[in-house]
């Protein structure tokens, strides 16, 4: 077990070091989300009716767009693993006497670091353009923890994706096709009640809605029932299903 932790940290360190050598990727983490927040708030914001409770669209949007953003954070894992696979690095790792799960655990762990970075960037942007917390410090921190847990769970889905697809381009488009509708047909950007019935039905069972509602509860005090616990359970279930699938795929992974 201690070997797993050490090896995981070594792999995570490697991922973060190489991130600093590829600054364009860092740009994707920071500039792109800021752009989306500004576009949504100032282009769509005036046209979207949100419940009076929120007062302004940015209060409604920010928790939602942060959840969407963190779900995409795992893309780094999918692309990185796919590249390692095609370049033969996975073969090298698998020929070493290291912990079997460490390459994937290290990948997903370094996503937590980059996710933290992008949450902070989005939060600061939001605070500048009118978002404010209506929560105790404990609730604010709990919100952070929930975001990182949910992002971590999604990283495991992306880990499996990165090992299964044949090219980074395929990982990219498959990831978008899967995650984009999931995040849009949820309560992240518009109130679910404004959607057609069929979409409403989907949005209400969509885990994204649950996580977004939980975040709104924790950060701006919106009523949320059991959304927080539901979001935690969803995240744990995703990890419990996808981590073993990804690790088993990794053990059989064939490079060139």
């Amino acid at each position: 077990m201690s070997r797993l932790i050490t090896d995981t940290l070594i792999v995570a360190e490697r991922n973060l070091v190489r991130l600093t050598r590829a600054p364009d990727l860092l740009l994707a983490f920071t500039v792109q989300p800021i752009m989306f927040v500004l576009l949504f708030v100032y282009v769509f914001g005036g046209a979207i009716l949100v419940p009076d409770f929120y007062g302004s669209y940015v209060m409604f949007l920010l928790p939602g767009i942060i959840v969407q953003n963190i779900a995409f954070g795992g893309f780094v894992t999918a692309l990185g693993l796919n590249e390692d696979l095609s370049k033969g690095l996975i073969d090298r790792f698998r020929s070493l006497p290291m912990a079997r799960a460490a390459v994937l655990a290290g990948r997903t762990l370094s996503d937590v670091v980059t996710n933290t970075l992008s949450v902070l960037v989005l939060l600061v942007t939001g605070l500048i353009i009118g978002f404010s917390f209506d929560a105790s410090p404990f609730e604010v921190l709990a919100g952070f923890a929930l975001l990182l847990l949910f992002g971590y769970a999604f990283s495991w889905i992306f880990a499996l994706l990165g090992l299964v697809v044949t090219s980074p381009e395929a990982a990219n488009s498959l990831g978008f096709i899967a995650v984009f509708p999931l995040t849009f047909i949820s309560s992240a950007f518009v109130p679910v009640e404004s959607m057609p019935a069929a979409l409403q039905w989907f949005a209400e069972i969509n885990p994204f809605t649950l996580v977004v509602d939980a975040m709104r509860h924790l950060w701006v005090g919106a009523p949320a029932g059991n959304a927080v616990w539901g979001a935690v359970v969803w995240s744990l279930v995703i990890i419990a299903v996808f981590a073993p699938l990804a690790v088993s795929r990794y053990r059989r992974a064939a490079g060139h």
């Binding site: 090896d7 070594i10 050598r21 590829a22 033969g88 690095l89 090298r92 290291m98 460490a102 490079g255």
Partner: peptide, 22 residues
């Protein structure tokens, strides 16, 4: 297929592998 991490330096590559050997 030279299985090295292109974004790491030569030394960083070898140190990573050495640490993964324990």
């Amino acid at each position: 297929y030279a299985a090295i991490d292109e974004n790491l330096t030569g030394l960083e590559n070898l140190v990573m592998v050495g640490r993964l050997y324990g």
